[in-house]
Nucleic acid binder design. Structure first.
Length: 936
RNA sequence: GCCGAAGUGGCGGAACGGUAUACGCGGUGGUCUCAAAAACCAUUGGAUGUUGAUCCUUGUGGGUUCGAAUCCCACCUUCGGCACCA
């Protein structure tokens, strides 16, 4: 029964049923058409499809529909990320088994997903918690193990006390290091855990970024996370002969190393610590280990550390340097030991100053800046005049002159001037681009650790009887500390630039641009070290001490050790009769039936691994699973079908997975490639990340704030099409935006207006025929709209696509009351509008398409193409400016030439008035746009 | 501190070298109605002005250009990521 008014609810139910009956969205293998695998990140089975899911999925669906109309063979499958903690927590709290809880949620979410009217291909849905699915997840684990990519190791791991499980590093968020899922601050724990060697692929993960069309911000975050650095591995030795390898990105600063720092948990610490220092060292190590257990809330980074009593030898200059431990050196990065070069590393600088360790500059400043502070009493009265005459800049500051020098020539001039004027018993220092101490009898360069000591001693001698005034000198333990007491000097004492090498034996003078490479080559030649690339990224910790995950298919046998479960015995099934502890401890640990097994190798008694896998493991390969869900053959999916459909062409999802899912799945695909299972390097060719949908109050939606929007409420009143369209209209998809309950009514009004334009008869009939101008104008609107909407769909700009359609419809509302109604041009306009809307509002478009008498289905139609000739403007508004200010707007033919435009412009009263008393200098004419008369 | 994104009417946003504020929301006035809602029509950045019109306005300050929201430099604010990574 055809209704006269737009009734979203009946229309939407009707068409969803029809689409399902006719299998409109079923996948078709068609080698003659270009395929397009469109995918949106699979939802977690939380039980309710919230507005965030709609915001992620509806535009993704619209884009897939657009591609379909463009002629692609499009496949858009759904699925569920079904393992994870909430299911288990529900089991503990409500006594429902995780399986039941999860599958009930899946059932409910399927209904909600259907209401969206998306082009889901339900035949290829996959649910990751089903044994038929996780059998393959386990299969991948065994493959990884077989190829040395899965290993078990003891180490300090992040542990969430609330979730009662370990977490991968990337699942620890924020300054307070809280659990990504529940927000509880994590703890450190020492445990044996399973890891994947993602670091083996660090370089490829960086290099292959060039092969994918992904948002820059995602690639930047991944780059940041991987944290590649280039430097040298250098072996230092303790005085007793122990090797202490270090990693440095600045081998060119080796000659400035004045101490070593080991991480408190470094294995050599116990051995190297001298008996006198042992108590202090142990106390510090204990404090450090406890500190990492306590929340690291204090961001104040005051350096702490303890001297362990031992010394090392700097391999490049044989300098004897003390060995310290300090918590600013991390065991997990590099070798867990560093050389301290305080003159060119900020952290080492702070550390050395605090503990009185020597600081020797070994890299020249690149800005040539030098400073000198002169006590007026220490020089002849004419000194200031001399400075002025020599053209040297200075400022008077109390009893001091602050001299700022630029470049070698100025410094030389300054030094000779000081030498002439210096009174006996005083000295003047120069810092920065040159390091000199000018005494009454000599100039001492600060160019070695020995000079550091000599200079300080001499200065202290000179002021010994004025200790009250020169406390900073008397109390200093290094020359640099003495200099640091002068606040004005501070910015000239330390830098981290790549400058020319100084004070570095025969390398002195090596240019900054080549220093690093030159020194590294020499280290290799001398057998002291070698070039090394380091990554900040860690291996992926996949063990979870929970029940609701895919069991790690490994067995521990007293005789054979760690033994993998044979492929034929997969899946290792989760026992159904598990008993859930209120503590959240994994019931697998206490389940005798699960725990006890026989060793696949020797047949003797053995115990199963009770840890399950991180759920990111399941989502790393789900886009392959969709090809043939729960595949029964020897491979996780049907290879032949995969060859046609893989890889994913367009992926969409939230940015929050930038360094988790999106990194893991890239790693997974590279491994699959190396296993010969796929022949491409990257799982998703193109990625688009949407922003976040916020509540009406512009805040993140949360139950506690009470600003949560339930899509079902709107779907049942205004219809899914209105919800879809409004979400796409809010703003640019990648930026997110806030919900608006009045905004969605505006969209609903728009759909109503379209309905009225298409379905209703005009209020009055016009008897005379339409003029060619009217026809031309209408067709121009039509083709301009096609042009704009197409461009917008290409770049995911759904908001402006909708704006263009609204504008077009507003024009149609007016045109309908004219003679144009019912003409072929009118038919073209109306059916074009319906076609353009089809991806965004699939239900009402289908209904209107039918009412236009067109064949089923609108979603199988070709996307309209615009005709450039028809889209062209005949008349334009020519902007006439005088000196860049708009003085007139002229309706003129689009093809108007400069001379004609000029003639027309000059006679405009507003223009001629502005030109009174000035001379025209220049005329700028932009065809079809504007005329700017430049006059003075 | 480092990396990335963004600052435009009352609000969401559009334009990304050439008419700033498209489109929508909200507001105001009107039509319809006994009335209201809905719908429809008109109007809506600010200031000055009787009119014609003029001036101001895209976070701030400079610059380039005939012309800058748009390009360049410096800064401020907000959001996201990383952060003692040697």
């Amino acid at each position: 029964m055809a209704e006269l008014r737009y009734n979203a609810i009946t229309i939407e139910a009707k068409w969803r049923q029809r689409w399902a009956e006719t299998g409109l969205y079923k996948r078709v293998q068609d080698p003659d058409r270009p395929k397009h695998y469109a995918l949106t990140m699979l939802p977690y089975t939380s039980g309710d499809l919230h507005i965030g899911h709609w915001y992620a999925m509806a535009p993704s669906d619209a884009r897939a529909r657009y591609m379909r109309m463009k002629g692609y063979n499009v496949w858009f499958p759904p699925g569920f990320d079904a393992f994870g903690l909430p299911a288990e927590n529900a089991a503990i709290r409500k006594g429902i088994h995780p399986f039941k809880w999860t599958m009930d949620n899946v059932e409910h979410m399927r209904t909600q997903l259907r209401a969206m009217g998306a082009m889901w291909d339900w035949d290829h849905e996959a649910v990751t918690c089903l044994p038929e699915y996780y059998r393959w997840t386990q299969w991948f684990f065994l493959k990884f193990y077989e190829h040395g990519l899965a290993y078990r190791a003891a180490g300090t791991v992040d542990f969430c006390p609330n979730c009662n499980t370990t977490l991968a590093r990337e699942q620890v968020w924020g300054e307070d290091r809280h659990c990504e899922r529940c927000g509880t601050p994590v703890m450190k724990k020492d445990l044996e855990q399973w890891y994947f060697r993602i670091t083996d692929y660090a370089q490829q993960l960086l290099d292959d970024m060039a092969k994918i069309d992904w948002p820059e911000r995602v690639l930047a975050m991944q780059q940041n996370w991987i944290g590649r650095s280039e430097g040298a591995h250098v072996v230092f030795h303790s005085e007793l002969g122990d090797e202490i390898p270090i990693y440095t990105t600045r081998p060119d600063t080796l000659w400035g190393a004045s101490f070593m720092v080991l991480a408190p948990e470094h294995p050599l610490v116990t051995r190297l610590t001298t008996p006198e220092q042992r108590a202090d060292v142990e106390a510090y190590r204990l404090a450090a280990s406890r500190q990492s257990e306590i929340e690291r809330l204090s961001t104040e980074k005051v350096k702490t550390g303890v001297f362990i009593g031992a010394y090392a030898v700097n391999p490049v200059n044989r300098e004897r340097i003390p060995i310290w431990i300090a918590d600013y050196v991390l065991m997990a990065y590099g070798t867990g030991a560093i050389m301290g070069v305080p003159s060119h590393d900020e952290r080492d600088f702070d550390f050395a100053l605090k503990f009185g360790l020597p600081i020797l500059p070994v890299i020249d400043r690149i800005d040539g800046l030098a400073k000198s502070l002169v006590l007026c009493d220490s020089v002849a009265p004419a000194f200031a005049t001399g400075l002025t005459e020599a053209g040297l800049a200075f400022e008077q500051a109390g009893p001091f002159l602050q001299v700022t020098l630029q470049g070698a020539e100025q410094i030389d001039r300054y030094v000779s001037l000081v030498r002439q004027s210096l009174r006996p018993g005083y000295w003047v220092d120069v810092v920065g681009a040159r390091w000199l101490f000018i005494f009454d009898d000599s100039v001492m360069p600060f160019d070695s650790f020995a000079a550091d000591r000599t200079i300080l001693a001499r200065c202290q001698d000179l002021v010994r009887d004025q200790a009250a005034d020169f406390g900073a000198v008397i109390n200093a333990s290094t020359t640099m500390e003495m200099l640091y007491s002068v606040e004005w000097y501070r910015d000239a004492l330390y830098h981290a630039e790549y400058g020319d090498m100084i004070n570095s034996g025969h390398f002195t003078g090596t240019l900054g641009a080549t220093a690093k490479a030159t020194v590294t080559a020499w280290l290799e030649e001398q057998g002291l070290g070698h070039h090394e690339v380091n990554y900040r990224m860690h291996d992926w910790l996949i063990s979870r001490q929970r029940y609701w995950g895919a069991p790690i298919p490994m067995v521990y046998c007293d005789a054979c050790g760690v033994v993998p479960v044979p492929y034929d015995d997969l899946p290792v099934v989760l026992p159904e009769d598990a008993e859930f502890m209120p503590t959240g401890e994994s019931p697998l640990k206490y389940h005798e039936g699960f725990l006890n097994t026989t060793c696949p190798q020797c047949g003797g008694p053995a115990r199963r691994e009770t840890d399950t896998m991180d759920t990111f493991m399941c989502s790393s390969w789900y886009h392959y699973a969709y090809v043939t869900p729960y595949h029964q053959g020897d491979t996780p999916w049907n290879v032949k079908e995969g060859q046609y459909w893989l890889p994913v062409d367009q992926y969409t999802g939230g940015i929050e997975h930038a360094t988790m899912h999106l990194l893991y799945t890239r790693f997974f695909t590279k491994v699959l490639r190396d296993l010969g299972m796929v022949d491409f390097d990257e799982p998703m060719r193109r990625l688009f990340c949407q922003g976040m949908i916020l509540g009406e109050d512009n805040e993140k939606m949360s139950k506690s704030r009470g600003n949560v929007v339930n899509p079902d409420d709107y779907v049942s009143t205004l219809g899914a099409d209105s919800v879809r369209a409004f979400l796409m209209f809010i703003g640019p998809w990648e930026l997110g935006g806030s919900w608006s309950s009045t905004g969605i009514e505006g969209i609903n009004r728009f759909i109503n207006r379209v309905w009225n334009v298409v379905v209703d008869a005009p209020e009055m009939t016009v008897n005379e025929p339409a003029t060619p101008e009217q026809i031309r104008e209408l067709r121009r609107w039509t083709h301009q709209t096609i042009r704009e909407v197409t461009a917008d769909f290409e770049s995911f700009k759904f908001n402006t696509a909708l704006a263009a359609m609204m504008k077009f419809n507003n024009n149609l509302v007016k045109a309908k009351q004219t003679a144009i109604y019912g003409t072929p041009a009118w038919q073209e306009a109306v059916s074009t509008l319906v076609l353009l809307m089809a991806p965004i509002t699939p239900h009402v478009s289908e209904e209107l398409w039918e009412r236009l008498g067109q064949p089923y289905s609108v979603h199988q139609q070709r996307w309209p193409e615009h005709d450039e000739e028809l889209a062209k403007d005949d008349e334009i508004t020519l902007i006439v400016q005088v000196n860049g200010r708009v003085r007139a707007r002229l309706e003129v033919p689009a093809e108007i030439g400069e001379q004609e435009a000029c003639d027309l412009a000059m006679v405009q009263p507003n223009v001629s008035r502005s030109l009174e008393g000035v001379q025209i200098r220049k005329v700028i004419f932009v065809p079809g746009k504007l005329l700017n008369i430049v006059a003075r």
